[in-house]
């Protein structure tokens, strides 16, 4: 019994980090109606940046947030304004910008394989001051960096929610995602909103990357499992919904960790795909999805 509670809590901790990557994905989708297939690769870029920060400076790994998050914000910002924008504009009247999806898969392949060429395929671990520290709580054991990571991501999620609800820029982003033309008529510059949405989505990845580095392996294709989990989460929570993404992340984390108590880890992966297909076939709008979005 205690094992299951431990797994449940571990699932919530890990799930909130999954949730943050999914929030980035769902934010970009909400605004642009584009699934960013390069999302996991952006996470990978963030993880390598945080890894090298820790290795080169030897400082506290959470200080990397101050550098990696802005870095990834501008990475996403310029990726959108240089590469995606011209393609997006060519087909902005189309119901679904499929060429943009294709281009983001192209970016995924370029980034992942560039990392493979530069850093090689080996799995790297950053030895930091918090790595491997264990917290005991009523006979249950948790990794300290996981707890810190979950705390940071939850705070980040709450801030982002507040930002979108109440700040001027947040309101502009929500207006654009509801109705592009109407938002445009109100004087909101769309291309700017797209750049910022892409930047924010990437910054979420940067944040997740920084909290992952103290306890997770870094390797060139690390983005792929996170990418696929983020896809599953956003569909589960409803494409475009931020609370849905966080809740979906927690659900996926719990399924993965509790499932691992009963079966081999490779089978839990299959369980996730099963859940995904079930949601897709039974309720494609997900938990909080809007009807117009599917």
């Amino acid at each position: 019994m205690i094992g299951i509670i431990e797994a449940l809590i571990n699932g919530i901790l890990m799930g909130s980090i999954y949730g943050l990557t999914a929030v980035g994905l769902t934010l970009i989708f909400g605004v642009m109606k584009v699934i960013n297939f390069a999302h996991g690769s952006i996470l990978m870029v963030g993880m390598f940046a945080a890894y090298w920060f820790v290795i080169l400076t030897g400082w506290n790994p959470y200080l990397a947030i101050l550098i990696v998050v802005p870095l990834l914000f501008y990475f996403g910002y310029f990726m959108q304004s240089w590469i995606i924008k011209p393609i997006f504009e060519a087909e902005k009247d189309v119901r679904e910008p499929i060429t943009v999806i294709i281009v983001t898969t192209g970016i995924w392949y370029v980034l992942d394989n560039l990392a493979l060429m530069i850093f090689g395929a080996e799995f790297r671990v950053a030895k930091t001051t918090v790595s491997g520290k264990i917290v005991e709580f009523y006979d249950m054991y948790f990794l300290l960096p996981k707890i810190i990571g979950a705390g940071i991501t939850i705070a980040c999620g709450i801030y982002l929610y507040w930002f979108l609800k109440h700040s001027k820029m947040g309101k502009a982003i929500r207006a654009t995602s509801l109705d592009r033309e109407a938002a445009s008529l109100m004087g909101i510059r769309q291309s700017n909103i797209y750049n910022i949405a892409f930047g924010l989505g990437s910054a979420c990845c940067g944040m997740a990357a920084c909290v992952l580095v103290p306890f997770y392996y870094v390797y060139p294709t690390v983005g792929v499992p996170f990418d696929i989990k983020a896809f599953i989460i956003v569909v589960l929570g409803g494409l475009g919904s931020i609370p849905g993404a966080i809740l979906g992340g927690v659900i996926i984390g719990i399924i993965e960790n509790v499932g691992a108590q009963f079966m081999a880890a490779t089978w839990t992966e299959l369980l996730l795909y099963g859940v995904f297909l079930f949601v897709l076939l039974v309720k494609p709008s997900g938990l909080f999805g809007l009807k117009q979005d599917f």
Partner: peptide, 24 residues
Amino acid sequence: RTLKLRGAYFALATIAIGEGIRVL
């Protein structure tokens, strides 16, 4: 089921099926 949805859903579903079958 998925061909009725937005194309993004179809793309995601096919990735999930492909990877799911590989894991299986």
